[in-house]
Design a protein around this nucleic acid. Structure first.
Length: 356
DNA sequence: AAGCCGGGGAT
DNA sequence: ATCCCAGGCTT
């Protein structure tokens, strides 16, 4: 019974994938380097967003050695705008490990792959199956959704017991020797047919095996976990001008947006004006006294767990010869407006730069 | 197990 | 406005 059902799912998915798979640059060949980079980029990032980044990256960094030789600063610039910036730092770390511990060749053993920084269960499974075509399963958001519907999982898919079941099933379903095509077929079905909102069940090659469809409750699967609402936050930032240059600072290596450059500023406290907050933040962060505040714009930007309103100002120094003292930042520079494009900024800062 | 990490696409 | 995305790391 179960055996026949699995056979039907395998056959349906593989046939459908042969006919309907998208042509994607990381599907052209199966080099572990290209699979690895694409998989890291694709973590929580949609294919359409990744495509231009991937092409630019491969043109500049054609192999692992070129990544290992590059500076983190340059890698970060190629990553600017994709978010989750620790991903690119882990790529740099992994490139060094591969060069020193694995003779420049991406490791082929699952345990060794899983140890690399930035590579967890999903990405290790992806490298093993998509690059080396070995029978390792993978589970991403697509697979969770497809299985929740196919097997009518009636509790949140993130729960531990469900994760165990999903990984076990993903392993059992692999047709021996065909993990590369099968795993991609599973994810491709989630991306093109088994959509989050309005799944195209009429075009689904495995709808005959779908338990939640038979029960008429496809729209109730997967069961969602609990979610947090966005907290609104007000932030003041200052473009400090001196001799036609603007001061920028580099964020610390840990926490939010590590090592990206930004304009100084910070959170506006309760019962505080944006101007007072900016003056306070320049004292706290840089030990500088500023004046001549001149409002430029309001920038709105949504993050995952909060939404910021950026109050942006031009400002100048009370004492023009006073130099900034870096308290939280790890670097600081005076740059011309033209040079701003050479540095990697968070998206909210980049919005402001584009306006100017 | 829960929180953190970002940005953009789709609806 | 909300949900979601080829997740991993830290606590």
């Amino acid at each position: 019974m179960k055996k026949e059902k699995y056979a039907s799912i395998r056959k349906g998915l593989l046939q459908w994938f042969q006919l309907h798979q998208r042509k994607l640059p990381w599907r052209r060949n199966h080099l572990p380097y290209e699979i690895w980079i694409s998989e890291i980029m694709l973590q929580q990032t949609q294919v359409k967003t990744v495509l231009p980044y991937y092409e630019r990256w491969m043109a500049r960094f054609p192999d692992i050695a070129s990544v290992a030789e590059a500076t983190e600063e340059e890698l970060l610039k190629y990553w600017e705008g994709m978010g989750y910036y620790s991903r690119v730092r882990n790529i740099h770390k992994t490139a060094h490990i591969v060069m020193t511990d694995h003779g420049g060749e991406f490791p082929r053993e699952h345990g060794a792959v899983l140890k690399l920084p930035g590579i967890g269960p999903y990405t290790a499974g992806a490298v093993m199956s998509l690059a080396f075509n070995e029978d390792f399963p993978l589970v991403d958001g697509n697979v969770e959704r497809v299985f929740a519907r196919l097997f009518d999982i009636d509790s949140p898919v993130k729960e531990k017991e469900n994760q165990k079941l999903i990984w076990k099933t993903a392993k059992e379903l692999i047709p021996s020797g065909m993990a590369r095509d099968f795993n991609q077929a599973l994810m491709e079905l989630g991306a093109l047919i088994c959509l989050p909102r309005t799944p195209l069940c009429g075009d689904c090659p495995v709808s005959g095996s779908c338990e939640s469809r038979r029960a008429g409750i496809v729209d109730q699967r997967p069961v969602a976990g609990k979610r947090k609402s966005l907290q609104p936050i007000q932030v003041a930032i200052g473009l400090l001008l001196r001799d036609g240059k603007i001061f920028i600072q580099k964020r610390p290596p840990h926490g939010l947006m590590p090592h990206l450059w930004e304009f100084p500023g910070g959170k506006i406290q309760e019962n505080e004006t944006p101007e007072a907050a900016l003056v306070r933040e320049f004292r706290e962060e840089l030990d500088l006294d500023i004046c001549g505040l001149n409002k430029i714009a309001l920038i709105r930007h949504n993050y995952t767990s909060f939404k910021v309103t950026l109050h942006a100002y031009f400002c100048t120094l009370v004492s023009p010869h006073q130099e900034p003292v870096l308290r939280t930042a790890v670097d600081g520079r005076w740059v011309t407006p033209d040079q701003l494009q050479d540095y990697a900024f968070p998206a909210a800062n980049r919005k402001l730069i584009r306006m100017l």
